Simulated scan of single mutants.
Amino acid sequence: MQITVVGGGKVGFTLASQLEKEGHDIAIIDNRLKIIEKCDDQLDVLCIHGNGANVNTLKEGNIEEADMMIAVTGSDEVNLICCMLAKKLGVKNTIARVRNPEYVNSIELLKDELGLSMSINPE
């Protein structure tokens, strides 16, 4: 399965590492160069330095061929935008990390309107 992970911090790195071990093809996108360099050094994944909420960056990471997008940046809003764009570009399953309790009451509407498959809160 081809999976794009946006956000290479602690959660994103752990996800990418585990998914890679399971034999999936992973692309990881992050706008922090040091994070991308760490991922490139330690993982056998496609590493893209850029904004995951940018269509051109997503396309550079082959989003149009991805089966799944998992957005786990530190920003709920960026995660939602990443998933919305991925859905518009043809990705079947999108998962957004949403931590802000203010969104809890509207998460079902967000899922329906943005085409989210799932929202997660690792905390």
Rank of each mutant, 00 (worst) to 15 (best):
P122G: 06
N121C: 14
C47W: 05
L33E: 15
V104Q: 15
I3L: 11
L80D: 02
I26R: 01
R99M: 10
M68I: 13
K21N: 13
I63W: 10
N51P: 00
D25A: 13
L15R: 06
Y103W: 08
I28M: 15
V78L: 08
N51A: 11
L116S: 02
N56C: 00
K38S: 04
I120W: 01
M68V: 13
M1N: 11
L15E: 07
E37V: 05
M118T: 07
L80E: 03
K10A: 11
E22A: 13
L114M: 12
G7D: 09
H24N: 15
I36W: 04
R99A: 09
G90E: 03
V104P: 00
D76C: 05
S119F: 14
N62V: 03
K92N: 14
T57A: 05
K87F: 00
G61T: 09
G61M: 09
K88E: 15
E65Y: 07
E60K: 15
N121W: 07
L114Y: 04
C47G: 10
G23P: 09
N51M: 09
N31P: 00
G115R: 08
L89M: 15
E123W: 01
D76T: 04
I48S: 05
L109T: 12
V98I: 10
A66E: 12
L43W: 07
S119E: 12
N56K: 13
N56D: 14
G50C: 08
S17Y: 09
V72F: 03
I81M: 14
